[in-house]
């Protein structure tokens, strides 16, 4: 007992790692539920098989061997019982493998049976951030955001996955399994959140230097709150009213920022970097690397290569007194 005490203390501690905003063992939607159920069925059956095998091994090692008359003497009785035991074990193994195959197949059927959903998103993987476009029948209601997906609770959402450069993989463990993003083709995945909350996802296929800093947040709201969020995102950025933020906008439009980023409602229309129209309303910046705050925005703009080496955001050498107006302007884009 004494020898097991550290293990007994450590085991519950490891289990606490299973909950949280990024865990497939803490499912928050029907797709993740299906996967978690499958995981536990596999784990339970295979654990049982392992225990039985180990017990049989242990017993056979401990069993006293009967004396044999000679090495060449046949023992039909013992042979027959051994044949029976081995046949039973093979049949049992085959039955388990077939049963697990059926369980796995049924789970796949449940996950990929439907590609219809009231809400369709186009998620594009870039090195190293996510572009998210909310599709709509009306072109004027289509909009783009970055690194953050908002979904209504209890509604399936179809996600079309595309890549602009290399292979990525979209994985929000609390809501669904992984789906690879392959350049030149479109993979589809349906996710659904059964309760509100924030779930973290991240790129699950090594995609270059900053693969580890390529996270995405999925925010699930009640339906009416989601609609409010969507209406706000559809609208263009409001022009700044105070002089400091006005100066910030001028700096944004006259500096390299404007070459890559878009702010709807201004001449900035770059499409190769995250859309910043409502950047102030996001939880994180730089694809989940830093929490969104004015200080972090300033740090990111001043030294992007120190925070995320290799990212495509260049060093811009802004003057010291340009940082405050610029970050105030960006912070206010809500």
């Amino acid at each position: 007992m004494r020898c097991c005490r550290p293990a007994l203390v450590a085991l519950p501690l490891t289990l606490t790692g299973c909950t949280g905003w990024q865990s497939s063992l803490d499912p928050q939607g029907p797709q993740a539920d299906t996967l978690a159920t499958m995981f536990w069925v596999f784990t339970a059956i295979l654990a049982l098989v392992w225990l039985l095998t180990m017990a049989a091994l242990f017993l056979s090692l401990r069993r006293a061997r009967a004396e044999r008359a000679g090495p060449l003497v046949l023992e039909p009785q013992a042979e027959r019982s051994m044949t029976r035991a081995v046949s039973a074990a093979v049949a049992f193994t085959a039955a388990i493998v077939i049963a697990l195959t059926v369980v796995s197949y049924a789970a796949q059927r449940a996950l990929f049976s439907s590609h219809e959903a009231p809400l369709t998103l186009l998620v594009k993987g870039h090195q190293w951030w996510w572009e998210v476009t909310y599709e709509d029948g009306q072109p004027s209601r289509r909009f783009t955001t970055a690194n953050e997906i908002h979904v209504p609770v209890g509604q399936p959402v179809l996600i079309k996955l595309q890549s602009s450069d290399v292979i990525h993989s979209f994985w929000v463990p609390s809501l669904a399994g992984k789906m690879d993003i392959v350049p030149g083709r479109e993979n589809r995945l349906v996710i659904e959140a059964s309760k509100d909350g924030i779930f973290r996802g991240q790129c699950a296929e090594f995609c270059g230097w900053q693969h580890a800093h390529m996270a995405i947040a999925v925010v699930a709201h009640p339906a009416e709150e989601f609609e409010r969020w969507r209406e706000n995102q559809i609208s263009a950025a409001e022009p700044p009213d105070d002089p400091l933020r006005k100066r910030g906008m001028e700096i944004f439009l006259s500096r390299p920022c404007v070459m890559c980023h878009q702010i709807r409602g201004t001449p900035a229309a770059g499409k190769v970097a995250p859309d910043l129209t409502h950047v102030g309303s996001r939880l994180h910046i730089a694809a989940g690397t830093l929490p969104n705050s004015r200080g972090n925005l300033a740090a990111w703009i001043t030294d992007p290569q120190g925070i995320k080496p290799g990212a495509h955001m260049p060093l811009m050498k802004l003057a010291g007194d340009e940082i405050e107006p610029l970050t105030r302007y960006l912070e206010g884009l809500r």
């Binding site: 006259s254 500096r255 390299p256 404007v258 070459m259 260049p314 060093l315 811009m316 050498k317």
Partner: peptide, 8 residues
Amino acid sequence: RGKIPEEQ
């Protein structure tokens, strides 16, 4: 000028 950083 001013739109693309010198290094780029």
